[in-house]
Design a protein around this nucleic acid. Structure first.
Lengths: 360, 360
DNA sequence: CAATACATGGCAACCCGTTGCCGTTGCGGC
DNA sequence: GCCGCAACGGCAACGGGTTGCCATGTATTG
């Protein structure tokens, strides 16, 4: 009779299984963690006993020795922002695929919150994906020294990064507006701590040079619908005919604000957003926007992180960049040369929601 | 000279601190976990040494003995659905307040996925909040035997629950439609596995009895915009003048589908949704909907869970119910008595986005 | 048939804290 | 001066696996 017993309400351990299967605990351990190391018949027997006893290996105990928890953290700037939903999906799916659990952290656009959350989480995870982090480069590098880190939507030297092709997206948007006759584009800026905000503006500057389109910037505003509405206010005193907004929420806020003020979109002002969130297709007029491969972002970043955890070198020199595309809907139109008057022919006033056109 | 040394790249442990501070490891442990148990000067010295060595207590090792990880899981049905964003916020905030970390799991509306995710997560968390779970009552009861569980948006006997006042919400919607002259309401059903779906329909049946309004149900449809569009198709062959949709996404899909088919909302058909998501205020016409206190839901469920983890009794007999309110926008109007013809006076055709009216 | 290699399984140390229990010390009370 | 008690700190046994190393038995090789 085995000398090891347990109160029946507690979970079975390898010791219980070992006693039942008449082997040593180490053999049970190996039967699960490296089956090749044990005779296949023995392993089978152990597995059967384990099944019967309802044994599950305790991930905490395992983590204690291996220092691998099989958990990764995904830190996002703002869970309220729908772009992260697909990113989270992509990340979760690839993590789950490798039997990793994802720990989601919402930083609520707060530098301080983000930092403390990371500090608290760090010791229990094998690696971290920082999506649109708001903390400083140096702080991120600090974290990257302790655990594998992949940064999403931001480029930092010496840390592996995944970004979307912002320059190209901005360029496509500028070309599109240029083709519609616009020779001046106003960029409505989002949070200054946001890396995409910076690169989008710089990309617009550059595109403006090459395409001979004048550009200017207003803001920063909060990256929300309200932020866009405030920007619309400001546009009142500094009118524009073409606007590129930091993201779709702001673009939607702009549409609402301008419409309320009696300005017609796209008749008087063309508006382009960023991200192609669901609401971009719901708002009237449908929002022309630069679409990012969100699911792929989450997935790529996670895959990279997992390979680092498995011991891959990690830093690849340059950031990995994912392609974007311009989705043309109805918030952009030929420039109205006589402001406030009749519109040029061919521009619909009340666009219905027809299938959007996807370019490049 | 202390006999305990460590490679400088590894994190300091209580043993390192103990050696430096010239006390035993247990004293170090106590200095952190129950400071009253050790002399305040000693504790202070230990704390200083720990600080200098950069010591942080390893949560995994602690969890191994205390079987408390200070993590809770929050399982949501679909991260793509914006209602969960605020619920997550509420949950995270109250968890963080008590120094708990939240592990978010997206079940992607899949019974199987949800179950396996829970099984995998269970051993590493102190408790679970199931928000809009799609798994069976009995499965939930099984889980509830192993760990504290709180169920959100669903009522199950013997398991603590937090729900919103669906009957009242439906009642308010029905009253509102009744006042507008509607004597027939069509309920557009969501997922059959969804508990709110069932209670909303039953509540409508009941409200219909009392208010002398005829009701019927079509569906089920997927709880998405596409689902709503498909429902609009079906409505073509079985017309309605007033529709209550399972949620806002479906309501928005209905508006789009009907509008595309040339049916005027709210002129020909009035539509009411559920949840008051952001897009409800963006769509044209603005959606009349039953708003739930999302943040409070997440927060209440989490608070209840935490108190159970701390040893509170848990099951309170009846579910905790949170109040709802009807947000009236522009998707509902006086019933059009001559279908397909001129509309009764006083009903706007192109509602602009004016501030919504909040009732009760 | 001896020598060697490989497949298996056990022993015991280790991961890093936690905690029940006991020993020591100092102090107040009688 | 003796006793009892409280405060403090250490010992050692956990918690549940993992893994380096060794012992045994069997198969392979020359």
């Amino acid at each position: 009779m085995p000398d090891h017993t347990r109160p029946p309400d507690k979970r079975a351990t390898i010791y219980d299984v070992a006693a039942e299967a008449d082997v040593s605990p180490s053999t049970v351990s190996r039967a699960f963690s490296r089956p090749s190391r044990v005779n296949s018949e023995t392993a089978e027997r152990i597995r059967r006993v384990a099944e019967r006893l309802g044994y599950r290996t305790n991930p905490l105990a395992r983590a204690l020795t291996t220092s691998r928890t099989h958990m990764i953290a995904l830190v996002i700037a703002d869970i309220t922002n729908p772009v992260y939903a697909e990113i989270v999906r992509g990340a979760q799916a690839t993590a789950m695929n490798d039997e990793y659990t994802t720990l989601l952290i919402d930083a609520q656009e707060s530098d301080r919150l983000e930092r403390t959350a990371i500090e608290r989480t760090m010791p229990t995870v094998d690696g971290i994906v920082l999506a649109s982090s708001r903390i400083s480069d140096s702080a991120i590098r600090m974290f990257a020294k302790q655990r594998p880190v992949v940064v999403l939507n931001r480029a930092i030297a010496d840390v592996p990064c995944v970004v979307t092709d912002n320059p190209r997206g901005v360029r496509r948007a500028a070309e599109h507006l240029g083709e519609l006759g616009h020779d001046h584009i106003t960029y409505v800026a989002g949070p200054q701590a946001s890396w995409p905000n910076g690169i989008r503006w710089r990309s617009l500057l550059e595109a403006g040079m090459e395409l001979e389109i004048k550009v200017r910037q207003i803001g920063p505003f909060s990256p929300t619908i309200e932020g866009g509405e405030r920007a619309a206010e400001e546009l009142r005193s500094r009118p524009a005919t073409a606007v590129l907004a930091f993201n779709d929420q702001m673009a939607i806020g702009l549409i609402r604000g301008l419409t309320r003020m009696g300005v017609d979109v796209p008749g008087d002002v063309s508006i382009v957003g960023f991200d192609n969130i669901l609401a971009a297709d719901i708002v009237t007029p449908g929002l022309t926007t630069v679409a990012a491969p969100l699911y792929a972002e989450g997935s790529a970043a996670t895959r990279h992180l997992l390979s680092m955890i498995e011991g891959a070198p990690g830093h690849t020199g340059r950031p990995m960049v994912l392609p974007v595309r311009l989705v043309v809907r109805h918030s952009t139109a030929v420039r109205n040369l006589r402001p406030g008057r009749a519109r040029p022919p061919g521009v619909r006033q009340r666009p219905t929601t027809t299938p959007a056109v996807h370019l490049s």
